[in-house]
Amino acid sequence: MAVVAHWRRMRDTELPRGHLAAQRPQSGGGMAPGMVPGTPMVDCESVMRQLWDYLDGELTSDRMTAIRGHIELCKRCYPQYEFEQSFLAAIAARGQQHSDPQQLRARVSDALRAQGLRDA
């Protein structure tokens, strides 16, 4: 199912709900303190520039970690992250399943056979 596939690709970008209240995120507009030592620091604008790439899992693992660390702690970036993530899930859910894939496979195989494709 498209949703499942999409969420599988997005799993590293998911953040646990409710973590903001527990971790007391910082005000937006700058670096998010409290990040894992050694993690490259990123600011809000960098996160905004790369949020789609992050949600699509298209960044390097270091960059994914850095942005995830920022979003977890930033009260300005987290709501946008949540908004965009819910948007992508709604779009992914529009992927339709075929009602009878076996029937379609048989139909395509018959057409190919008529075109000259030999059975295995």
Partner: peptide
């Protein structure tokens, strides 16, 4: 075939049209 079917279904929202599209694609 399953991936092409899903893609065809997203292009053609009607399943019968999607079936035609999948068959033509593979031919």
């Amino acid at each position: 075939l399953p991936e092409v079917t899903r893609y065809a279904m997203s292009l053609e929202r009607d399943e019968a049209n999607a079936d035609d599209l999948v068959q033509e694609t593979f031919l």
